[in-house]
Amino acid sequence: MSDYSAASRSAGPGAGAAEEASATGGVRLPSAAAAVQAAPVPVEGAGVRERRKALPGWAHGWIVPLLVLAAWELGSALGLVSESALPAPSRIAQAFWSLVASGELARHIGASFVRAGGGFLLGGATGLLLGLFTGLGKWVERTLDPTVQMLRTVPLLAVIPLFILWFGVGEFSKILLISLGAFFPVYFHTFLGVRSADRKLHEVTKALEFSALQQATKLILPSALPNVLLGIRLSVGVSWLLLAVAEMMGASSGIGYLIQDARVYSQTDIVFVGIGLFALVGKLSDSGVRLLEKRWLGWRSSYKG
């Protein structure tokens, strides 16, 4: 990854632009200007790009996990690893299928999804709004930000007992815990994003007579978007983490409960199914945000993701 971006940087902005332009398919670079822009592509940069093409980008990340799985299966077959500590991947797959067949899995995933999604949406939306407000107004910042910063330093897991005392171990305290965790990254990065809006571009919007609403939607929001998306990505990660915590502290459904319950009965294979599910869902939601980044932030010259 890093050698690729370094290579394309050395290839000059023209080359990167041409490449991304053809990737988005929309831009023609006619006449002499095109020739000038396309000219300084060094052979080395092109070589790296070709080597990458031999394997599609999405497949690249699977090399290591697949190798590990193969070694693991082989180790189990040869009896090198204890079946109770580290069941073979094929046995985990079996446990997975039986959970799917019984409909258990769908129920757990559904329950987890509602909690994580609800908490994330609640916390993320609050963080976005509050971040926008504190970002836009100096007065709001002075009023609110110190308090938020102070709360941020409290370890979230330390407030779990309080939530249980107040709200019991029901759905509400779970969603609240997750939303609290999801709040901070979005809040913080939205604030930073709003403040990163260029003062010079702001002058342009005044000269062009943008309305206040247009300034917000056509200058502040696009300027803040890279940071907001980063905040959302971090927040999604925190949501899954807290989901696991919340479901292990007491629940009757959910992936976290599945893991906890299987531990009690020493069903290591099901524990692995749960862990695998967390990995999968976490990865999928992360990819979702990345997809948004790709679609919305394609204009950034530094963007190489």
Partner: peptide, 25 residues
């Protein structure tokens, strides 16, 4: 807008295409 200003730097919106930059708001 009765006074058009061109600064030393182009000051375009990096997230907008050329035609959208011209149109702006």
């Amino acid at each position: 807008i009765d006074k058009g200003v061109i600064f030393q730097e182009p000051r375009l919106f990096p997230w907008l295409t050329v035609e959208k930059n011209v149109a702006a708001n």
